[in-house]
């Protein structure tokens, strides 16, 4: 079947098989930030935006994205760099394999709620597993980033 979608701002029209998962489609298109950590929708590593809302690309059929917009971290490099620097300043990026999914979801959180509490942060990112960091360093990084924003750091692009 043929689909058209906008991937990271670029229009793509392509012939796909109906059972092609979005994660595989994205990796085939060079979006290597999108990682697979499980087969059961439990890890959050594969998080991307479908029409600006975070979804698990391992659980979305590519066919469903026909006529929609998909964003991956490849299309959000400035935000990833700006926010990611705060994670890096804690040493909490560690192996980095979970980082793209967590950072996508964190960006989604900041867009929805510019001033989340610790509890809101933990709830929102609960589906993003990390085996290296114990999460505390990520939380410290997020808090530091939010503080920087409150002090007038350039705001997230919408």
């Amino acid at each position: 079947m043929q689909i058209s979608l906008v991937l990271n701002g670029k229009k793509i029209t392509e012939e796909i098989t109906p059972d092609l998962l979005l994660i595989d489609f994205l990796r085939n298109h060079g979006c290597y930030s999108v990682k697979r950590g499980c087969e059961t929708s439990n890890c959050g590593l594969c998080t991307v935006f479908l029409d600006k809302k975070p979804v698990l690309s391992c659980s979305v059929l590519t066919a469903r994205t026909d006529g929609h917009a998909i964003d991956t971290l490849e299309g959000l490099q400035d935000e990833a760099k700006e926010f990611g620097a705060f994670i890096a300043d804690q040493g909490a990026e560690q192996c980095g394999f979970c980082n793209p999914g967590m950072i996508m979801n964190a960006i989604a959180l900041f867009r929805e709620n510019a001033d989340p509490t610790d509890e809101e942060i933990k709830e929102y990112l609960a589906g993003n597993l990390c085996r290296c960091s114990g999460y505390e360093g990520q939380l410290r990084g997020i808090r530091a980033f939010l503080e920087y924003k409150r002090q007038g750091g350039a705001s997230c692009r919408q």
């Binding site: 290597y32 930030s33 990611g84 620097a85």
Partner: peptide
Amino acid sequence: RKKDAEALVTGKPVF
């Protein structure tokens, strides 16, 4: 900061 930090947080193809 870790030397590979930026590549990791921006999701570069390094794995």
